[in-house]
Nucleic acid binder design. Structure first.
Lengths: 291, 291
DNA sequence: TTGCTCCTCACGTCACGTGAGGTGGC
DNA sequence: TTGCTCCTCACGTCACGTGAGGTGGC
C-alpha cells in the first residue's frame, strides 16, 4: 500500500487531485487510518485510476466519468467511446482552425477603419411572404442551417409549391447568447400546403422600412456587414425595432440561383455567394444624438 | 447609440460579457445615463470590441487583452502576434493528438489486467557516478529533456570527459505536480571537469537496493513501467525511499548506444528504445500487509 | 522528542451564467 | 399607468491550487 505522496508520484496525479477524487467518490483509498485519517492506496486501484484519467483526458467531466465507471463498461466499449470522442475532438479542431482564420479576417477588415467597408444601406419595404419554415435553437449555425434548408427544400419540392424568391433566416433572439441562437429557417412557397411536426407553414409579415445591405462572401462576412449596418444606423439616426433577417440571394457554386442546396454551399467558392441582411428600423424620436 | 441589448445582438457578444468588460475597464460604454445607469454604446467602439474578441479568441486572458490594448499595437503587430499564437495553438494540437493516442494505449494496456505486463523487477545496488548535470523545472518533459541532453553531451565532449555509461534523469519531485517536474538531467563523465552557470559537475550517490525495471519503447511506456513497478513493490513488501531515476540505455534510431542524441531520439522508431527505471526501496517493517 | 507527513477547512481561480430584487423609460 | 428594459448585487460554475492551522507517525 502507498501513502498518498508516493501514489501521486508514481501515477503522475497530484495529491490534491487524489483527495478531490476521494471526495467525489471516484477513487476511494482502500484504507483510511481511522486515527490519523491517512489515505492508503493499493496498486489494485491503478486500473480504475487509469480509467479515470483516460476518460478525463477524453474531455468528460468528472461527473460523467463517475457515471461511466458505474456502468462498468468493457475495455472495448470504452475504446469505442474513445474513438467517437476523438472524432468529435478532431471536428472541434477543424472548427477551431476555421474560427482562427476568421480572427485574422476580423483583424484585417474590422480593426482600424471600418469605414472602408463599402456597403450600401437602403431602407425599403419588404412584402409579406408565405413560407415553410422550421424554428429551433441551433448551436453550430452554418452546418445546421444548411441541413434545415435542405430538409425544407425537399419537402416543398415534393409539394411542388416553391415560390421564385430567395430563402432566408430570421434571428428571433433579442440579444446574443453563447449556447445557441433561436433561428427560423424559411423557404418561400406559392400557396398554402400542409406542414408537419417539424415544418410550419405560415405567413411572414411584411415590414415597412427595413434597412437592407447586400454583401458577398460566406457566413464569416456577416459580422462585417452587421458592423457596417450598425455604423449606418447610428449615423442616420435610426434604431432597430424587430428581428434581423438574412436572405440568401445567390448560394450555388455555379452562381445560379438554385432552390436546392448542394454541398457546395458549404465548401466551395464562398466568395461568390451573395446575401442580404435586413433589419426593421425606425427613426429615433427627438433630436439626433450629437457626436 | 445603442442600448446594450441591440449592441449585444449585432456584435454577437452577450449582454453579460459587455457588462463584464465594462467592469474590467476593457470596454466602457460611451455614455452611462446618470439617472438610470443605462449603458449606451456607439459604433465607434466596434474596432475596440472586435480587437477584444479577436485577442480573447487567440487564447489571451482578459487581463492580457487589456494590456495589449493599452500598448496600442498596430494592426500589423497584432496580426504578427496572431500568427505566433496560431503556431503555438497548432503545436498544442499536435501535442493533444499525441496525448490522445496515449489515452488509447493507456486503455489498452493498463486497464483490465496490468498483470499481463511482462516486466522483470530486480533489486540491485547502483554504484556512485560522476556526472555533468542540469537541474531545473521542466514542463514539456520529452522535448526539453532532449535539448538538455544535447547541451550536456556537447559540453562534455568538448572536455573529452565522457564516461562509457548511459545518461539518465533524476526526478527530484516527491509528489507529482501539473505545472512542471523538478528534473536533473545527468551525463556520466570520467573525471572532474569545470562546470558553468548552467551545468553542475557532481557525484551522484550510489544506492544500495534499487528496484530496477527495464522496458522498451518511448516515453509513453514509462507510465506502464511505473505501474508494473508499483504492483511489484506492493506484492513484495517494499516501499520507496528516494528519488526515481530513468536511465536511457539505448536511444539511437540505429540501435547503437550513442553519446550524442540525434533528432531521431524524438521521432523515429521509438519502439527500439530501451530504458530502465530505478527506484530506491527498503523492506517494509513489521508484518506484511494482508491482502 | 523533533521534524515530517498527512489531514481538514476555507478561500481563490477565470470568465462569465443565472437568478433575485429593484428602478427608470416610453 | 403598465409592462418592459436595464440596473446592481450575490452566488454558482468546474476541477482543482494554495495556503492556514492542526495532528498523527516514525
Amino acid at each position: 500500500m502507498f501513502k498518498i505522496r508516493d501514489f501521486s508520484r508514481f501515477t503522475r496525479v497530484t495529491m490534491k487531485m487524489l483527495r478531490h477524487y476521494d471526495e467525489l467518490g471516484l477513487l476511494k483509498p482502500v484504507t483510511i487510518d481511522p486515527e490519523s485519517g491517512y489515505r492508503y492506496y493499493s496498486s489494485d486501484q491503478l486500473p480504475r485510476l487509469n480509467r479515470i484519467i483516460a476518460l478525463k483526458d477524453l474531455g468528460f467531466s468528472l461527473e460523467q466519468v463517475g457515471r461511466l465507471l458505474d456502468e462498468n463498461l468493457s475495455g472495448e466499449e470504452i475504446r469505442g467511446m474513445f474513438r467517437m470522442r476523438q472524432a468529435e475532438i478532431e471536428e472541434n479542431l477543424r472548427l477551431e482552425q476555421a474560427r482562427l482564420s476568421q480572427v485574422d479576417t476580423r483583424l484585417r477588415y474590422l480593426e482600424q477603419n471600418p469605414q472602408h467597408l463599402n456597403f450600401d444601406v437602403v431602407v425599403r419595404d419588404v412584402a409579406p411572404v408565405m413560407v415553410a419554415s422550421i424554428r429551433l435553437n441551433v448551436s453550430n449555425e452554418e452546418q445546421q442551417v444548411f441541413r434545415l434548408f435542405e430538409e425544407l427544400e425537399i419537402y416543398v419540392a415534393a409539394h411542388q409549391a416553391r415560390a421564385y424568391s430567395s430563402p432566408f433566416v430570421i434571428y428571433h433572439d433579442e440579444e446574443f447568447k453563447e449556447d445557441g441562437a433561436d433561428i427560423e429557417v424559411a423557404v418561400p412557397i406559392q400557396e398554402w400546403i400542409q406542414g408537419n411536426d417539424r415544418i410550419t407553414v405560415r405567413e411572414v409579415l411584411g415590414m415597412p422600412g427595413m434597412a437592407c445591405l447586400v454583401y458577398t462572401g460566406g457566413y464569416d462576412r456577416t459580422d462585417e456587414a452587421l458592423n457596417a449596418l450598425m455604423i449606418w444606423i447610428e449615423a442616420n439616426g435610426y434604431r432597430s425595432c424587430g428581428p434581423l433577417r438574412e436572405v440568401f440571394l445567390r448560394f450555388n457554386a455555379d452562381g445560379a440561383q438554385g432552390f436546392y442546396l448542394p454541398k457546395a454551399f458549404l465548401t466551395d467558392r464562398k466568395e461568390l455567394f451573395v446575401s442580404e441582411i435586413q433589419l426593421p428600423v425606425e427613426k429615433v424620436q427627438g433630436p439626433k444624438p450629437r457626436r
